[in-house]
Amino acid sequence: MFYRNSSTEMISEGFTKATEKINNNDVSGLQELLKSHEVEIDEEDDHGMTLLQHAAFKGKKELCQLLLDLGADPNGGHHEHQYSALHFAALSGNLDICQQLLHCGSKPDALNSVGRTATQMAAFVGNHGVVSVINNFIPRTDIEQYTVVCKDETEPKLPPAAAPALHKFVMQVNLHPVHLLLTVQKLPLLSDNLSKVGHVLELLSENQMKRSHEANEILSLKYHYLRFLVERLAKEQQQHSDKPVVELINQYVKAFLKPRTSDGFPEFMDNFIRESVRTFPFKETTVFRQLLVNLSKTKQSLDSQLALSLLSSCINGQRGFQDDDACATCGQEKVPSKCSICKSVQYCNRDCQKIHWFIHKKECDKLAKQFKNLEIKSQNSQANVEANQ
């Protein structure tokens, strides 16, 4: 048997076996060990770490899910430096584990011994994807509360069937308006209830500023931005009731993508985002003031930061660099495909490529020639290096 550093409380040999299973990513082995009761689900080692914390730190997604399914406390443990399982997941950089823990009730505002949250620790080590995931997490119950008929009401503010769709919508990390519009298009229960969705988003934004504990200005701003987009789409729907919402979304998408003739700047999208920020009702908030100052310093030109970039940084956290492999249509990062002709422009899929073609067709041949010239130069350079060896 093993003992804690300065305690008479014994730690089972089963705990050591369990950590070995975690290190080896042995899901079935850990499951059998837990079933045999050789180790308790929330048992701690001499550093106060639980099995879930070990699995989160090692980035073992399947093992974390197993432990959570078997009842592990997502906020358990008494780590010597007060790190939670979410802290460890944030440090490991595993987005899926962070989402698992958050969905199971892990507290994103828990502080370690130096007063840092999991989000702050993730930012410190450069795991910006984790920062985005935690900042954008919204409990399902926040949405579901509006599916209940309240006193003096004849129907809920949101149809119960639409709650999962709205939750998926508000959890989006990519704030590009085209991505959000395409998300609405894929969720008919949203597009069929635009006015109600807009109203619920307004209430969600207000509630973030009325919380009994610290107000969440960033989440309030995000809800407002989503509401601004949804209400604009709802207005288009009212004005063109003869057109299906899919057609309206496609038209709106093209408006966002259409560049300014003189220099290719996405003026419509930039103006839209600036207006969404200006209409944020909580003018006294720090997030609004800082964002407004940053926008006022930014010119609407290709050599300046886009309003979308400023808004995304505000909500998702600052990043040391911006990926250059984003989809040209919806802004989704780390996309798998490129235009087969010019091999220079990235897309999520064929659908995004088709949407963007009305713009890309004007420059595809030119980009293809540039790519070919670069390829030839690279080959010649490599040949010269080999010849001089």
Rank of each mutant, 00 (worst) to 15 (best):
Q346T: 14
D242N: 09
K196N: 14
L68H: 02
L181G: 04
W357V: 04
K151F: 10
S296H: 05
Q332Y: 06
T147E: 04
P266M: 09
A72K: 02
N23M: 05
E9K: 14
E20W: 07
L111Q: 10
G320F: 01
R350S: 15
N373L: 10
I22K: 08
K297A: 07
Q100D: 15
H103R: 12
E153N: 11
Q172M: 06
L257K: 07
K354G: 10
T329D: 01
R260P: 00
L221T: 02
K372R: 15
D303A: 01
V125H: 02
L229H: 01
I376P: 05
Q238S: 14
V230H: 02
S301G: 01
V293M: 10
F169W: 05
V173W: 01
A162T: 15
G71F: 04
V277L: 10
I97Q: 10
I41C: 09
D45P: 07
H79Q: 06
Q185E: 11
E275H: 14
L68P: 05
P188I: 09
L51D: 12
V385A: 11
A123Y: 09
K61I: 12
A110D: 15
S212N: 12
E363C: 06
S132E: 14
G129F: 07
G198K: 12
A90L: 03
Q100E: 12
T50Q: 01
S205Q: 04
A89Y: 10
I41G: 02
S309T: 14
R140I: 12
S344A: 13
L194S: 11
E206F: 11
N384Y: 03
T261M: 09
L187V: 09
T279N: 08
L175Y: 00
P244I: 01
L187G: 08
Q251M: 13
S7Y: 04
K299N: 12
S205D: 02
N216K: 08
D324K: 11
C104A: 12
G59K: 02
A163I: 05
G320Q: 00
H54M: 06
F57T: 13
L204P: 08
V39C: 09
L302K: 08
F124N: 11
Q99Y: 08
V230N: 01
Q379C: 09
V200W: 00
N349H: 10
C327M: 02
H356D: 14
T141E: 15
Y252F: 13
E44L: 04
H360I: 09
N127M: 03
Q82T: 09
V200Y: 05
N349R: 06
H176G: 10
S304R: 06
G77N: 08
E13G: 11
F169T: 00
T19N: 01
N373K: 13
V27I: 13
V114W: 12
D152T: 01
N23A: 11
C98P: 02
E32C: 12
G71K: 05
A89L: 09
N349M: 08
N193Q: 04
P281K: 06
F2M: 07
T117E: 03
